[in-house]
Amino acid sequence: MGEREFTGTLQRADLGTGGYLLLDDQGERWQLDGDVPAELVGRRVRVTGRVGTGFGFVMAGPVLEVRRVRAE
């Protein structure tokens, strides 16, 4: 599956040792796998990446393999 851009709010998940989530504009929650700037937590962001097939311990939604996260 190719790369896409997702928009929504960046969240910090307090699950296990923690992780980042994107709550997109369609109400879907994604786990972000990749470099995520912590200072953008709570802000609206644009995430460039592709839907992943991986597994993880956050288990709060499908995995999004992140290439870039920018503030909107």
């Binding site: 040792t17 992943g52 097939t53 991986g54 597994f55």
Partner: peptide
């Protein structure tokens, strides 16, 4: 089977 970031492939 999970990376330092907490993800792993099937």
């Amino acid at each position: 089977a999970l990376s330092g970031a907490g993800f792993g492939q099937s």
